[in-house]
Design a protein around this nucleic acid. Structure first.
Length: 185
DNA sequence: CGTTTTTGACCTGCGC
DNA sequence: GCGCAGGTCAAAAACG
């Protein structure tokens, strides 16, 4: 496999030391490697205060051409959201993971139904939209591959599952639980 | 035959 | 207001 060494080429600006090390320590990426993914490259969780509706940031990194917002400081993937009525100004927090993998479908233990696929600008790979098939669970995720480095898959989760995993996967479960610790603040 | 994927149309927000 | 881009819907196809 590939060595877990570095992020995408353009991420030279970010100090890979702190971020990557923290990740590997907390998640134990070695085990992760043994399964489907070959290594977790990074995680970004964002969630803003309900009051601030900073549209500026949204317009800035819309489509986040290379998701380089992972570089730390601004973790705003924004939700330009297809919120129908838009009663609430609150945006759902989204959590993005970068994973080095050959395949797009990373099995996280949940059952997903694909409901859309769109071509993204500045990216030759399409982005796929999935929704959790569990009844009453509206968790969504989207999977995208970077043009720059097609070995990297970006998975963005939206919402949290409130039901148990439906599959008997091995140690993925405890990895997920640790992930939720990460994203729970 | 039920469930999932595919795929174009449709909708919404934003910039010009 | 128009066009673009991202996100969703839904009908038909594909799958097991």
């Amino acid at each position: 496999m590939e060595n877990f060494q570095g992020f995408s080429p353009n991420s030279s600006t970010l100090s890979a030391s702190s971020l990557s090390l923290n990740m590997t320590n907390s998640l134990g990426y070695a085990e992760f490697q043994g399964n489907k993914a070959n290594g977790l490259l990074g995680l970004m969780a964002e969630m803003e205060g309900p009051a601030s509706l900073n549209v500026h940031n949204i317009s800035q990194n819309k489509t986040f051409p290379e998701i380089n917002s992972l570089a730390g400081t601004e973790t705003e993937t924004d939700v330009k959201f297809g919120k129908k009525k838009a009663d609430k100004k609150i945006r759902k927090p989204r959590y993005a993971f970068q994973t080095r993998s050959q395949v797009d479908i990373l099995d996280d233990g949940y059952r997903w139904r694909k409901y859309g696929q769109k071509a993204v600008k500045n990216n030759k790979f399409p982005r796929s939209y999935y929704r959790c098939t569990h009844q009453g669970c509206n968790v969504k995720k989207q999977v995208q591959r970077l043009t720059k480095d097609e070995g990297i898959v970006v998975t963005t989760y939206e919402g949290m599952h409130s039901h148990p995993i439906q599959k008997s996967n091995d140690n993925f479960e405890h990895i997920l639980s640790q992930m939720q610790i990460f994203t729970s603040f």
